[in-house]
Simulated assay, not measured.
Amino acid sequence: MAKITIGVPVYNGEATLERSLESLRTQTYRDIEIIVSDNASTDCSAEIAQSFADRDPRFRVVRRKTNVGPVPNFFSLLEMAETDLFMWRADDDWSNAEYIAELKAKFDADGRIRLAGPEAVIVRRDGSIANVNSFVAPWQRLRILRVGHVLMNLNASSIYGLWHKPTLMEILSRTRANYQYIWAWDHMAMLPVILSESVTGSNLAKLYVGQPDAARYSAKEPARIMWEMRGAFRRACFAELWQLDWPLWEKLLLAPYLLRYANVRVYRFWKTVRRHIRQIV
């Protein structure tokens, strides 16, 4: 059995899927299984995925007859995986050939690691680089400052890094009960491994985050829901904090970091205020 499973959810991703899957097929770390879950695409996504499965037994394609929605399709891949190490891959992202090897090396080097994230390279539609979000390891001697540093600097694309699957499953069962929204679920999922200092990263693992021509999924929440999300996210953050086996004084000193984390990871305060004003005038 493979040592690492990569789950690729796709819906109408024919424009970018082949590049994404090819970057997985050519990884230098070979002991992998790639599961592509096609969510009843109306384009050639399923056929593209099947062409990889026909040529490489490490690929497996799940073809849904009806669209179950992006969220169930995304999380179903985690449930399909039978390995202890797992990662998601967006159908419009791709990576360098050493991506998995570099992240797996982080697990091999430190048994405490539960998430190893990449450097995220944001690529414009014309192929130019818009931004590079590197992993900056904490250097501070105090635990509060180290955790605070990672809270403020870990990039969102780390959710597409390499996870210890049992830990991720346990985190999701707990955090999804406390925070039942999809927006910012990735930051909520990463919070426990940040607090436990079991997350790291490698800037030798490059995740290229593409920008498609048009969004396939979009949502514009009313201000009331935005306020609810902010409150729920903040409460869930502090639920994670209070369960830590830390002295009370450390928890209290970390609280300002968590308040800032909650403000910037969901909907920012002033963005929510502006939408509220637009809806009432």
Score class of each variant (00 low, 15 high):
167 T>E: 08
174 R>D: 12
233 F>Y: 09
231 G>N: 12
139 W>G: 13
232 A>Y: 08
230 R>Y: 08
188 M>P: 10
99 Y>S: 04
142 L>M: 01
93 D>Q: 10
280 I>V: 14
87 M>T: 14
193 V>L: 05
240 E>A: 03
31 D>K: 06
235 R>F: 12
105 A>W: 09
36 V>M: 09
207 L>R: 03
159 I>E: 01
121 V>I: 15
176 R>I: 08
88 W>M: 02
271 K>V: 12
86 F>S: 00
221 E>A: 12
41 S>C: 08
35 I>Q: 04
211 Q>F: 10
247 P>C: 10
79 E>N: 09
89 R>P: 03
209 V>A: 07
179 Y>H: 04
63 R>E: 11
176 R>K: 11
43 D>V: 02
64 R>A: 03
258 L>G: 02
6 I>T: 06
172 L>E: 09
226 M>V: 01
9 P>M: 00
173 S>E: 11
181 Y>V: 11
210 G>E: 06
97 A>M: 02
76 S>W: 13
198 S>I: 02
263 N>A: 10
223 A>C: 06
208 Y>W: 05
122 I>D: 02
88 W>G: 02
181 Y>G: 08
224 R>K: 14
52 F>V: 04
129 I>V: 15
95 S>V: 14
200 T>N: 00
132 V>D: 06
116 A>N: 06
7 G>P: 01
76 S>L: 13
275 R>I: 05
203 N>M: 14
41 S>N: 12
263 N>W: 00
185 W>M: 13
7 G>C: 03
204 L>D: 10
8 V>C: 09
35 I>P: 01
164 H>A: 06
54 D>Y: 01
231 G>K: 13
1 M>G: 10
69 G>Q: 01
2 A>W: 08
154 L>F: 11
187 H>I: 06
274 R>N: 11
62 V>W: 08
15 A>D: 14
211 Q>S: 15
182 I>G: 04
111 G>M: 05
262 A>S: 13
217 Y>S: 15
143 R>A: 12
223 A>M: 09
70 P>N: 07
233 F>N: 04
202 S>Y: 06
130 A>S: 07
69 G>P: 06
225 I>R: 08
237 C>R: 00
9 P>E: 02
62 V>G: 01
250 E>C: 08
155 N>L: 00
215 A>T: 09
250 E>T: 04
80 M>R: 15
267 Y>Q: 07
124 R>P: 02
150 V>T: 07
227 W>V: 07
274 R>W: 14
10 V>L: 11
276 H>D: 13
